[in-house]
Amino acid sequence: MRRIATIALLSLSPAAACAEGTMPQMDFANPLTSYQVVWMAVILVALYLLLARWGLPEMGKVLANRASVIAQDLAAARAAKITADQAVAALNATMSQARGAAGAEVAQAVAKAKAEAMAQAAALAASLDQKLAESEGRIAAARSAAMAAIKPVAAEAAASILQKLTGNAPEADILGQRVDAALAAGKAA
């Protein structure tokens, strides 16, 4: 493509192309044309030796050094990450253990407090029941005492009322039976 363009341009200006006659590149009569290759060989050999013995190995050392430093840093970072992971795992384990222990302790304390409270409540209820029973017993005793006290009074009162009405003193046995019956009826009523 480019060669075609060159040929087209050169053919457009044939005077220019013919001004020199031939291309200097093809002028092998000129000793410089072939001698430039000899000098190029000398320059290239020198350049090759400098690059192969000094430049490229030195550059390679710099690059290898960088690669090893990067590898070392990566290894260190990896090791640090493993340590950190282990530390996190240990921390998590300790945390969950402590949490479990704390939970158990709390549950134990709650159960203990509950048991104590229940025991207290039971004791209180027992003492209350006891007091109630005592009180009831006392009331019943008082009542029976009162009832027992009522009977002679009632029999005396009935005897004196009967004496005043009839003039005769009633028989104590019969009076006693009647008073009992009346009291029982009153109690039933």
Partner: peptide
């Protein structure tokens, strides 16, 4: 002026 397109390639000491 003419166009000397190839003179630039000529070798000189």
């Amino acid at each position: 002026p003419t166009i000397d397109a190839l003179g630039q390639f000529s070798l000189t000491p």
